[in-house]
């Protein structure tokens, strides 16, 4: 039996001239939470669709529980709980009908758990799904994704467009799923605080490529955000060890950097600067440093430099 729940090897996918995924390698182990982050159109949903077998791997391989999700959709999907970004559930059904319908596909369906969640979210089982608000719809979709206690829970932008209360409900349900030993969660999100709060492991995708794939612990210990000062005015941003992003002008700069803190300190000293303060970088800072565009101030600086 394979040790990985998800194994993606050298997966590439193009849509026309757009490279949605470019030689992606990704693995997920049992009992961990994987946060998938990336800008809009980075390739997160394309990767998730491959995991679900909704897209055939044209180049590379995808294995879920050691099986190809295209060749055995029934076997694979029975063990997955999936919440789609647009909460795609049959809205002509009542909530109760959806619960019964979904339950029929999963031998491990826990009606007690489903009822408990319905009560928690104050959802009336007799209500038609089409009459529900966006938030309630997300709650219903979530219940149908988790009530069979799936081995792998895939959430595509679970918090997108939801208010703080519903977001909290969803996160609590995810936490509960995680707390059950051996279950794996993969979720994509724009809300990096959420990813930081829940994930054991973060995978960053940018323009179809994995730019960062590591445990949150290692990412945190490896990335710092430092404020530095120079005695003299700097005509351009200084060149420093391990810089991912630098902003500021004149004598003061703010730097997001990775690697050893000592090496960075030395490189600052070497060019006549000093570190005023330093802390671990937040995931948002790391994300922006890796996939973000230069801000307006930096663009003007770049233009100045090229003159």
């Amino acid at each position: 039996m394979t040790e990985f729940v998800v194994e993606v090897n050298n997966l590439s996918r193009s849509f026309g001239k757009t490279n949605a995924l470019d030689s992606v390698d990704f693995t997920a182990s049992r009992g961990k939470v994987y946060g998938l982050v990336g800008a809009n159109g980075a390739g997160k949903t394309t990767l998730i669709k491959h995991l679900l077998g909704l897209l055939r791997a044209k180049s590379g391989t995808v294995k879920i529980f050691g099986e190809d999700p295209v060749r055995n959709p029934e076997g694979v999907l029975k063990r997955i709980g999936y919440l789609s970004e647009d909460r795609d559930i049959p809205d002509w059904m009542s909530i109760d009908e959806l619960m019964r319908y979904t339950g029929a596909f999963h031998s491990a369906w826990d009606q007690g758990y489903a009822t408990e969640l319905l009560d928690t979210f104050s959802l009336d089982p007799e209500k038609k799904i089409k009459t529900l608000s966006r938030g309630m719809r997300a709650q219903v979709a979530l219940i149908s994704a988790v009530a069979h206690r799936p081995d792998l829970l895939i959430l595509d932008e679970p918090s997108s467009g939801l208010d703080a209360v519903v977001r909290k409900d969803i996160l609590n349900a995810v936490v509960r799923t995680i707390s059950e030993e051996g279950r794996t969660v993969i979720f994509s999100s724009h809300l990096l605080e959420e990813v930081e709060r829940l994930s054991d492991h973060v995978t960053m995708i940018h323009q179809g490529k994995i730019t960062l794939d590591s445990s949150l612990e290692i990412i945190n210990s490896n990335h710092h955000c430092s404020s530095i000062r120079f005695a003299d005015l700097q005509s351009s941003p200084p060149s420093l060890e391990g810089v991912a992003k630098i902003s500021g002008e004149g004598r003061f700069f703010s730097v997001v950097h990775q690697g050893s803190m000592d090496a960075f300190q030395n490189s600052v000293k070497k060019i006549g600067g000093e570190i005023l303060k330093s802390r671990h970088a937040t995931l948002e800072e790391i994300f922006v440093s890796r996939v973000g565009r230069p801000d307006i101030g930096e663009l003007s600086q770049l233009k100045e430099n090229t003159k």
């Binding site: 679900l52 909704l54 959709p73 029934e74 999936y82 789609s84 795609d88 049959p90 596909f105 999963h106």
Partner: peptide
């Protein structure tokens, strides 16, 4: 095609 339909755990 609805994602819900496509992810129905039943053979094609």
């Amino acid at each position: 095609v609805s994602l819900h339909d496509r992810t129905t755990p039943l053979s094609t």
